[in-house]
Amino acid sequence: MGNPMKIRAASKDGVTEVKVLISHEMETGQRKDSAGAVVPAWWIKELTAKHNDKIVLTSEIGSSVSKNPYLAFKFKGGAKGDKIVVTWVDNKGDTRTDEAAIA
């Protein structure tokens, strides 16, 4: 199920900026380990971010996104204390959801 994400969200002048750090290997399937064996592809494919009950971002992701992915985006609205909920699913079907309050 992976380790927790780090979600930071802050609202200013009616706009909320969300920054997400995700713990994930993001293996391309093209890398070889020290023994020369191909490291199988393993990456986050999809991500959804919600503000309270409303979807504010969905993403389709390829394996060229960096290890321990970082994502930042902005949406209109959002008040201090509102919930930001982020969910990802990787190519093995593993998934994780974390949430944070808007500061």
Binding site: L57, T58, S59, I61, V65, S66, P69, Y70, K74, F75
Partner: peptide, 20 residues
């Protein structure tokens, strides 16, 4: 293609990430 993002109304056209 590294990533694509769908932006519902209200989400700004401003997305940052990191790629290999």
């Amino acid at each position: 293609l590294a990533a694509s993002f769908n932006l519902p109304a209200g989400t700004e056209a401003n997305v940052q990430t990191r790629v290999k």
